[in-house]
């Protein structure tokens, strides 16, 4: 029998697929490099002061990131403060309370929230939710907490509070679905032994399920945090886009992403552009840090639980 001689494609195949993998590495490297080079003029001119200056005046070429960074952090914080407890109780509902059919239906609906494009949240936020907030929620907040500077000022709807609430809605499905999976991984035997001792559902959740799955829940929160911090369109629509820091959550502000979305195409001179790219660099740096912490956390968790990977 004669074997047909043929060219061995295997090495080529191997290299070709490796090229795909290296492309990812190369892209991440070039994004870092490009952002740093692009931001260089602003880095040189403003130095570390860029992060602590509140002035943003393209006409006088004065740029500072403080209000954008502040807006990013505050809107994300509001979003997480609302989303985390809400996600926890929804996950509790899905795993412990609802009958399977209801749980699947509600779970699916909550996951659909994640599939809605962010610009749709923006449209709804600007035209529907912000007016609702201005008419019904903000006056009520002011009257409930009369002295609190957080809830002072004219109820205009758009602003930090609206951005935070919409961010909460957007990260809710991510945290909920991971938390639900984590809750489901708790062995039935462990839960049943607690029920057998006469615990109520809430006691089982608080003293058995939650401690068992707390690591995973924290991981889920990091996931949500990572998404919220770079969210652009929804925030751009509702945050008000004003380069000022104000104590009230009702006031308009801006975030790094919204500043980029609004001003990038308008950047007329090199320094303006460099300052915007430096804002992008700051945002990239923040996501990098979150990602590192999340990885570290997950690895620590895996080691603690004795898992292989």
């Amino acid at each position: 029998m004669q074997t047909k001689s043929h060219i061995n494609f295997d090495p080529a195949f191997r290299w070709l697929t490796l090229a795909g993998g290296l492309a990812i590495l190369f892209l991440v490297g070039s994004i870092c490099y490009t952002l740093i080079i692009g931001a260089m003029p602003a880095l040189k001119k403003f130095g570390i002061g860029f992060l602590f200056s509140q002035s943003w005046d393209p006409a006088f070429k004065e740029f500072g990131a403080l209000s954008s960074v502040y807006g990013t952090l505050v809107s994300t914080a509001i979003g997480m403060l609302i989303a985390v407890p809400l996600s926890l109780v929804i996950a509790l509902f899905l795993v412990e309370l609802a009958p399977p059919a209801v749980s699947r239906l509600v779970g699916g609906a909550i996951e659909l929230l994640a599939a809605i494009p962010s610009i749709i949240y923006g449209m709804w936020g600007l035209f529907v939710f912000a007016p609702f907030l201005a008419d019904h929620v903000q006056p009520w907040l002011t009257s409930v907490a009369p002295g609190l500077p957080l809830f002072q000022g004219p109820p205009i709807g758009i602003g930090m509070l609206a951005a935070g609430i919409i961010l909460a809605l957007m990260v809710l499905p991510f945290i909920t679905s991971v938390t639900r999976d984590v809750f489901q991984m708790v062995p039935e035997v462990v839960k049943e032994s607690a029920y057998g001792m006469g615990s109520t559902t809430w006691e089982v959740t608080r003293k058995v399920t939650l401690p068992y799955g707390i690591q995973g829940v924290v991981g889920a929160c990091f996931l949500g945090l990572g998404r919220a911090i770079g969210e652009t369109m929804a925030v751009t629509f509702v945050i008000g886009n004003r380069h000022e820091i104000s104590a009230s959550l009702f006031a308009a502000g801006n975030s790094i992403a919204s500043t980029l979305a609004n001003e990038f195409t308008e950047a007329s001179d090199d320094l303006y552009l460099a300052a915007l790219i430096e804002l992008g660099l700051v945002l990239f740096g923040i996501t990098l840090v979150i990602q590192f912490i999340a990885r570290w956390w997950l690895r620590r968790t895996a080691r603690k639980l004795g898992a292989v990977r």
């Binding site: 990812i24 490009t34 911090i229 652009t232 992008g280 990602q291």
Partner: peptide
């Protein structure tokens, strides 16, 4: 590469936009 992929996944899409704009 896995870490880079995770990082790229969590990079805000507007940053990718800035990158492609410059490049």
């Amino acid at each position: 590469i896995r870490f880079a992929a995770n990082l790229l996944m969590s990079t805000p899409s507007i940053i990718i936009g800035v990158f492609v704009y410059v490049v």
